[in-house]
């Protein structure tokens, strides 16, 4: 009853608003895990699932975190069913203009990302590319906040090593 009072608008209207706000970002997120071809389907499935399970959303996290949690689970299930782990690097290949010499090359960075473990890559993507804070990532992945911090630290240490080696080989 309380939940109903807190959510007077229909699930469809709420989820439609989520579509408006987060479609693009969620598509990018899914494309990173399942590839561009399947990203549309998974994104759509995420919103459909969100629509069906909206009544279960208690508002303890932000709708965006909740939505990306669904998307994350669907991507995992998708990759499990395909018996593969996809980490799409083709997202960056399309745009290679406007390169800032002070920054790391996109392809180099993606290549280094590709060498991270799944857990490390997960937190890096959520934090750096989708702007989730540590508490949100912890909630989304169901891990402790300290674990998020630790994983990010190790992921960045690994990236730094990778990128350092690549810089030296150039």
């Amino acid at each position: 009853m309380r939940g109903w009072l807190l959510k007077p608008r229909s699930a469809n209207a709420e989820v439609a608003q989520l579509v408006e706000k987060h479609y693009d970002e969620l598509w990018r997120f899914c494309a990173r895990w399942v590839g561009r071809e399947d990203a549309g389907d998974i994104t759509q499935e995420t919103f459909m699932t969100a629509q069906k399970t909206w009544h279960r959303f208690e508002g303890r996290s932000t709708p965006k975190t909740w939505l990306f949690g669904i998307g994350q689970n669907l991507c995992r299930a998708h990759n499990r069913s395909r018996k593969r782990e996809c980490f799409s690097e083709d997202l960056v290949l399309e745009e290679q203009t406007d390169r800032d010499p002070n920054l790391i090359d996109k392809i180099t960075l993606e290549a280094a990302m590709g060498k991270l473990s799944h857990e490390h890559r997960e937190v890096v993507v959520l934090h750096e590319l989708h702007g989730f804070v540590y508490t949100e990532i912890a909630e989304l992945l169901g891990i402790a906040e300290g674990t998020v911090k630790s994983r990010l630290h190790h992921a960045f240490a690994h990236l730094r090593r990778q990128l350092g080696v690549q810089e030296e080989t150039r």
Binding site: Y23, W27, R28, L91, E95, N102, L103, L109, E128, L129
Partner: peptide, 22 residues
């Protein structure tokens, strides 16, 4: 440097499907 470099990975083109999604 690494953190700022990640900004450049955010801009993949998304096929517009929002209307159909709604």
């Amino acid at each position: 440097k690494i953190t700022h470099s990640f900004q450049s990975l955010k801009d993949a083109t998304v096929p517009t499907q929002t209307e159909s999604m709604i």
